[in-house]
Each structure stands twice: as structure tokens, then as C-alpha cells.
Write a protein that binds this DNA or RNA. Structure first.
Length: 790
DNA sequence: GTATTATCTAAGTCT
DNA sequence: TAGATAATAC
């Protein structure tokens, strides 16, 4: 409380402006309190700063934090915004502002209002994998060819329809759409769409798009809800407005219709989600829809060097479709952008890794100062391997997240089924895992019965006694066992603490045992992942208690399992960071990098048909989107950009030759440097050569940077020691002369004793007993065992 | 109904 | 290359 007063007194002493923190345009955008406002914010021009100070300023002028709504696209952006508001106005007020992603805020509202549109408030959420599986099942039932009706494409089309407010009915009535589907030989897409929507509804489930779609539906169909939230949210702020689609815009417009206190911030040059229905048109429409709109342009960049800004401007200039804007900076000129050329994708990885190593030493930087950005997730592997080889810690954002791993999804499916018995994808996932004798035939019959009666599979299963279906009595009793097991979980979900129940489910469902009994290394790591998930729940429960102490601290046992599910359902793994251990190189797609900044940025895979993507090269508008993507990538960097490409790479399992990306050529060469190839790492060099290369100062840094910092030598020696140690331990196979009875060490299983040997050398197999992991059969050429003693 | 093996085929970006 | 699916054996 004291803190709160203190913070506010500082505030009021500032007479309401922030000359030290904000430039004049930023100040105007912050101080202009009421009415519609649009801020066109160039890259690095302090857009988040405007948003956060604006929220602070609103609170300062006595606006109730509960009536401020700030919407972002990513959890990360939301979290950062919240943190920064906390810094300015203090904890309590900031916590009360509704800051979140479109999806999470709407999910929160829908939980409260779900019954008004026929959903249970405990609805569960399908992620993309679940949605695809559901669609796959429908395609199969219809007897259609899933090579024509590719589930991913079908989902895409359904998603785009929802985001453009096209219902299944409108879809099947639209002549253009029907013609399109006929031409692409997929006339039954509309039917699939309708069935998919029905199934989700019957299962009490929403997919990502439904969270938006149903929010809009709620506001359209239930006037009392519309009025409630129109009155509640007096001030609305939207981040990354250029990425909103029609559906999102429709919702926002409805919410803001009463007060018209809406502030949108965006940059058309950074619109990179048109493929998902994002509509640049929204920016233009906004000007039409709000006649008394105030527009502010932020053009001064505070992030990057002149060279980077100039290079980025060269690129974006090639686009026809754009609002006029001139981004400029007062920052230093900085270094030229360095172009790296490699022969293969793996070589590219090596060069980038070595260049990072080198820059780290030359400029005395941390790992976390570097980011490697790529167009597609598949490119991360070469980078990972190279970084691992020279022992540079890294962290991958995106890709297959923790929550998308099979074993994690399996356990979560039990949780989801516990909370929402009707959740069909979760049901199908675990009904026979671990194996309990309910086979495909039985499941199919349940699905048929569900389809015929327009009910969920669960309802069929739970009413087997009253409404039998043609399955064997053995199968029936197994199904009933399963039903009663889930029912007992569901019962406990209302009384039991999340962590306790989660543990109970993990063990009594048999998942943990199944993995434990299977002694393969894969199962071991899956087992560990589940333990990690359980630990996560434990931590969640503990934090939850801390955060809710002031509230209902009576003898409340919560949080419940449903609280945990709601907390994680919309998380992606970029949200599961470990804050204590964050000195790591970041690897991510450019899409994921939007809104972030790093001192040194490596943009890799700059090749035709990769970046720009081959799927985009045939249309002007898609090429422009790729170009904006490149613009986003360039403007992530503060100090220096490296552009790299390979002249060949493996794709679809075979080697293809690549040409440098057109985007590189669009940068005026006066902003580029091409290091003499002799100075770069030579191809196929052995470990000896690479060490020499490290020691030699590369030309690129020699010409642009004056001196080598003095601790260079020391760090070099240290880093090499680490790298070497790692290699010696497990890279070399020194199991020649391995005999029964010897003590060995394995990278994962630790110490063990050889019980048995069979086969001859290239394929020799050993049976080893490990104290920590039990008995294993290992192929020597893969296991990389190390002999400890005889 | 279950487990193992063989074959296939997919790889664009996110909530 | 790896994960998913189909085919096969048990």
C-alpha cells in the first residue's frame, strides 16, 4: 500500500507528461486520453513503450484498472507489457488491468458466459493437433482420400472461414467458394466443415478459432453480454493491429462501440500473418470507421544502427503496398551487414556457430545477445548440431513444444477428459492407452453410435447399459470399467487439489507404469517429461496459493485441476522459459521473433525457394509478405546482422542446389560486407584447422572493429577446454576390447556392468546392467560406451 | 486384440 | 530424416 502511494506521488509530480522517457509524438499518443487513436509505429520506434505508458497514464487519471483492456497476439508480449506496467504503476493496479492475448482474454470471458451459447463452462480447447485428428477422422468416415483432402489444408480452410465470419451454412451457399472447391476437386469441404463444427460443439470443445468466433457470436447474439462488456471495458488498446483479421476486428469494434476509446498500434510493414487471414485493410477501414481518428506516426528508431535501418529500408521500399513512412535513427552508423556463404546446410550451421563463438569473444558478449532466425522450423537442426558441437548453449523457441509431445499430450488428455468427459479427441487418445483391451473395432462402433444419435462418444459409453450397442460383452465391460475410472477422476476434480489429483491420475491410469516398464531410452525420457509435467503442476499449485493468499485463504484446497488446464491450454513453449538459466543463444522462426530484439542477429537460409518460400514465389502479394518478413528479421537487430545462405541443402531427404535469395540483392551493396572466403572457415576442415580459425581474427571484424579485448585469450582457452572435454567423453567409441564383467559409462544411463556380449564388431551388441536404469541391450556403435575399468 | 516390422510420405509461418 | 501408418506376425 505504501509503495502504491509512493509510486503515485512520483507520478503526479511529473505534471502528467514524460519528457524524459518519451519523445514528443510518443507523448502525444500517450496523453491523448479519449477517442479513437491509431499509432503507426515503425520497427523499434517504441511502440510497446507508448502502450505501457498509455495504460499507466489512464490509471493515473483515475481510470479503474479493471476497465482497461489490452490485447496482444502472443503471451510473451502480454507478459512483457504487464511487467512494464507494473514497473511504472506498481503491482496491484497493473495486475488488475485486463492484459492478455486475444485468445486468452476471450477464453476467460467465454468461461463465464459459455452457457448462454450452449457450451459448458468447463469446455476444453483443441490445439492444432487435436483439430487435425478430428478432421482426419471425419475424412476417413466419409471414405475420402486424405491425399486429396489433406487434413492440414482442410483445417486451414475451415480456420480461414471462421476468421472471415463464414459459417458452414454461408460456406455451402457461397457460389464462389463452391466453385473454388469444385475446381480443386474437393467438393465436400463444406460438409466436412459442418461436421467438424457439430462434433466440436457436441464434445463441449472449442478450437483456437472458436475462441474468437464464439466471442463474436456471444456479442452478436446476446445483447446483455454485449452491454456488460461495452460498459466494462472503457479503454481498449490493441497491439500489432496490422495482424488482426476480420473476426478480431469485428469483436474489437463491438466492444469499443459505446465509448470509442480505442487505441490501436501497428506497422503495416510488419504485417506477416496475411496467410492466417490478417488483413492490412483493417488499418484503412479503421480510418473510415472512426471519423474523428487521431493518427500518430512514430518514425524514429531507437533500436538499430544506421546501417541496419538503411538496409531494411532498401528492402521494404520494393513493396508496392504500403503506407508512407520513413524510418530513421540517430544511432551510430555501426557495422556493415556480413554475408556468409556455405556449401551445405550443415556447413552453414558450423559457420554460424563459429561466427557466434568468434563474436562472443571479440566483443565480449553473452550467449543471450545472439539470435539465429530462420524461415522454417526444420532449419533449426543444422544450427543446433553445430552449436552443440562447440558447446554453445542455446534455446529453441517454437517447433514441437513440450505440451505437444505425445506422452505429455496423453497425460493431459486424461486431465482434459476428467474435466470435460465429452472431449472426443482426448477420449480417443486414452481410451486404449495404456492398452486395456478396447480395440479399434469397439471404438469405431462407439463413434458410429455417437454419429447416428448426434451425441458425444462419452454419452454413448456412459449409457451403454440403457442403450446397448453391438459390441461383445467383454468389450462392454472394459468400456464400463474405463467409464467408471474417468468418472471417479471427475468426481475428485471438484474436491481434490490439482497436484494430488494429477499424480493420482498419472499413476492409476497406468501411463507412468507403462513407460517405466518399457526400458528403452525413449521411454525413459518420456517418463522424465511426465515427471516434469507433474512438477510443473506442483509449482503451479504452490504459486497459486501465494497469489491467492489475500483472497479466499480459508480452508480452500485449490487450485483444482481445471485451473491448471486453463492456465496452460493457450501456452506455447516460448512461454515455458527457465528464467534462472537464460544465457543462451535464441533459435526461432522469424515469425516468433516479431516484437523481440537482440544485439546480434543471424538470418540464415537466405535462398530462393526457402526464403522467400517456394509457395510464395508465384504471387506478388505473397512475395511482399515474405519481404515484410525479411524486414522484420533485419529490424530485430540492434548492433549487427549476419546474412547466411548455403549453395546446397537437404530437403525431402535429398540434396538440392540453391541460389542466394533475391532479398539479399535488394540491399544496396554499400551496406554489405563479404568477408574474403579465405578468412572464413575452410570447408571440410578438421578440428585442428577450426581451432586455428578461431585464433585468427577474421577480416570482417578486423576492418570494422578496432581492437581485440584483452581477456580474449583467457576466454578462448577456457571455452576450448569445455568444448574438448565434451567431445572426449562421448564422441569417441573406445570400446575396443570390451569384455563381459567390465564397468562402463553411458551418456544417459550412467555407470553399469557388462553382462553379455554378442555379434561381431560393427554390429556388436552388449547387455549391460545400469544401477540407475536397469538392464539394457545396446548396439556398441551407437551407444558410445566408455570403459571405466576391467 | 496386441506388438513388431516395413513402408510411406511429408516439411510454412502461430494462437 | 523421422514420424505416422499399413502390414504382418503373434
Amino acid at each position: 500500500m505504501y509503495l502504491w502511494v509512493f509510486q503515485h506521488s512520483i507520478f503526479f509530480s511529473g505534471v502528467g507528461s514524460y519528457p524524459d522517457e518519451l519523445n514528443s509524438v510518443q507523448q502525444q499518443a500517450v496523453m491523448c486520453k479519449d477517442g479513437p487513436i491509431m499509432v503507426i509505429a515503425g520497427a523499434g520506434s517504441g511502440k510497446t513503450r507508448v502502450l505501457t505508458y498509455r495504460i499507466a497514464q489512464l490509471i493515473k487519471t483515475q481510470v479503474n484498472p479493471f476497465s482497461i483492456l489490452a490485447l496482444t497476439f502472443t503471451n510473451k508480449a502480454a507478459r512483457e507489457m504487464k511487467e512494464r506496467v507494473v514497473q511504472i504503476v506498481g503491482g496491484t493496479d497493473a495486475q488488475n488491468v485486463w492484459i492478455g492475448t486475444f485468445h486468452s482474454i476471450f477464453a476467460r470471458i467465454l468461461r463465464i458466459e459459455a452457457d448462454k451459447i450452449g457450451y459448458p463452462s468447463n469446455f476444453t480447447i483443441y490445439d492444432t493437433i487435436d483439430s487435425k485428428n478430428q478432421i482426419k477422422a471425419i475424412i476417413k468416415e466419409y471414405g475420402l482420400d486424405d491425399k486429396v483432402y489433406k487434413p492440414g489444408l482442410v483445417l486451414n480452410r475451415i480456420s480461414l472461414s471462421k476468421n472471415n465470419l463464414i459459417t458452414p451454412l454461408l460456406y455451402s451457399e457461397d457460389i464462389m467458394i463452391q466453385k473454388e472447391d469444385q475446381q480443386s476437386n474437393k467438393p465436400r469441404l463444406g460438409e466436412i466443415y459442418q461436421t467438424y463444427v457439430n462434433r466440436c460443439f457436441n464434445a463441449g470443445v472449442m478450437d483456437f478459432d472458436d475462441l474468437l468466433y464464439n466471442m463474436n457470436y456471444l456479442l452478436t447474439e446476446i445483447p446483455e453480454v454485449l452491454h456488460k462488456f461495452q460498459h466494462k471495458f472503457q479503454y481498449i488498446l490493441i497491439d500489432e493491429f496490422q495482424d488482426t483479421n476480420l473476426l478480431q476486428y469485428s469483436i474489437v469494434k463491438k466492444l469499443a462501440a459505446l465509448n470509442e476509446n480505442i487505441c490501436v498500434v501497428g506497422d503495416d510493414a510488419q504485417s506477416i500473418y496475411a496467410f492466417r487471414g490478417a488483413n492490412i485493410q483493417n488499418i484503412l477501414n479503421f480510418q473510415k470507421d472512426y471519423q474523428d481518428l487521431q493518427v500518430y506516426k512514430l518514425e524514429q528508431n531507437y533500436r538499430s544502427t544506421k546501417n541496419i535501418i538503411n538496409a531494411a529500408n532498401c528492402v521494404i521500399k520494393k513493396n508496392n503496398q504500403q503506407l508512407h513512412k520513413e524510418v530513421w535513427t540517430h544511432n551510430e552508423e555501426g557495422e556493415l551487414l556480413t554475408v556468409l556463404k556455405a556449401l551445405t546446410d550443415n556447413e552453414e550451421g558450423r559457420q554460424v556457430a563459429h561466427s557466434i563463438f568468434d563474436s562472443k569473444v571479440n566483443y565480449q558478449l553473452f550467449n543471450k545477445d545472439f539470435a539465429i532466425l530462420y524461415r522454417t522450423n526444420a532449419q533449426s537442426r543444422a544450427m543446433e548440431e553445430a552449436l552443440r558441437k562447440i558447446n554453445i548453449p542455446y534455446r529453441i523457441y517454437g517447433g514441437l513444444s513440450f505440451y505437444q509431445r505425445k506422452e505429455v499430450k496423453d497425460l493431459l488428455a486424461y486431465f482434459r477428459l476428467t474435466i470435460n468427459n465429452k472431449d472426443e479427441e482426448s477420449l480417443k487418445r486414452v481410451i486404449n492407452y495404456p492398452a486395456r483391451g478396447i480395440g479399434n473395432r469397439t471404438v469405431e462402433k462407439i463413434m458410429v453410435a455417437a454419429e447416428e444419435t448426434n451425441r458425444s462418444m462419452w454419452e454413448i459409453m456412459a449409457n451403454l447399459k440403457k442403450h446397448p450397442i453391438p459390441i461383445s460383452s467383454a468389450a462392454e465391460s472394459k468400456v464400463l470399467d474405463f467409464v467408471s475410472k474417468i468418472k471417479s477422476y471427475s468426481f475428485q476434480a471438484g474436491t481434490e487439489n490439482a497436484y494430488k489429483l494429477a499424480e493420482l491420475i498419472a499413476s492409476s491410469s497406468g501411463i507412468l507404469k507403462d513407460l517405466y516398464d518399457n526400458q528403452s531410452p525413449e521411454a525413459l525420457s518420456k517418463y522424465e517429461n511426465l515427471q516434469e509435467l507433474l512438477n510443473g503442476i506442483k509449482e503451479f499449485a504452490e504459486n497459486w496459493h501465494k497469489n491467492n493468499l489475500d483472497g479466499e485463504s480459508d480452508d480452500f484446497k485449490g487450485p483444482y485441476l481445471s485451473d491448471f488446464l486453463q492456465d496452460i491450454e493457450l501456452l506455447t513453449d516460448s512461454d515455458v522459459g527457465d528464467p534462472n538459466d537464460n544465457d543462451k543463444v535464441s533459435l526461432m522462426t522469424i515469425h516468433a521473433a516479431k516484437g523481440l530484439e537482440f544485439p546480434f542477429v543471424y538470418i540464415v537460409g537466405l535462398e530462393e525457394n526457402l526464403f522467400p518460400s517456394q509457395l510464395a514465389v508465384n504471387s506478388r502479394s505473397e512475395i511482399e509478405e515474405e519481404r515484410r518478413l525479411f524486414y522484420v528479421a533485419l529490424t530485430r537487430a540492434r548492433k549487427k546482422v549476419f546474412l547466411s545462405y548455403a549453395t546446397s541443402r537437404y530437403r525431402w531427404g535429398n540434396l538440392i542446389y540453391c541460389e542466394p535469395s533475391r532479398f539479399m540483392e535488394e540491399i544496396d551493396s554499400k551496406y554489405l560486407s563479404f568477408p574474403d572466403s579465405l578468412d572464413g572457415p575452410p570447408m571440410n576442415r578438421g578440428p585442428q584447422r577450426s581451432i586455428n580459425w578461431f585464433r585468427k581474427k577474421p577480416k570482417s571484424t578486423k576492418t570494422t572493429h578496432g581492437h581485440i579485448p584483452s581477456p580474449l585469450k583467457k576466454s578462448l582457452v577456457q571455452l576450448h577446454k569445455v568444448a574438448k572435454k565434451d567431445n572426449q567423453d562421448f564422441e569417441y567409441d573406445d570400446t575396443k576390447g570390451l569384455q563381459v564383467g567390465m564397468e562402463v559409462e553411458h551418456q544417459r544411463f550412467g555407470f553399469g556392468k557388462v553382462l553379455h556380449l554378442e555379434g561381431v564388431l560393427p554390429n556388436q551388441k552388449a547387455t549391460v546392467f545400469f544401477s540407475s536404469a536397469g538392464q539394457k541391450q545396446l548396439l556398441l556403435k551407437y551407444a558410445k560406451l566408455k570403459i571405466i575399468e576391467n
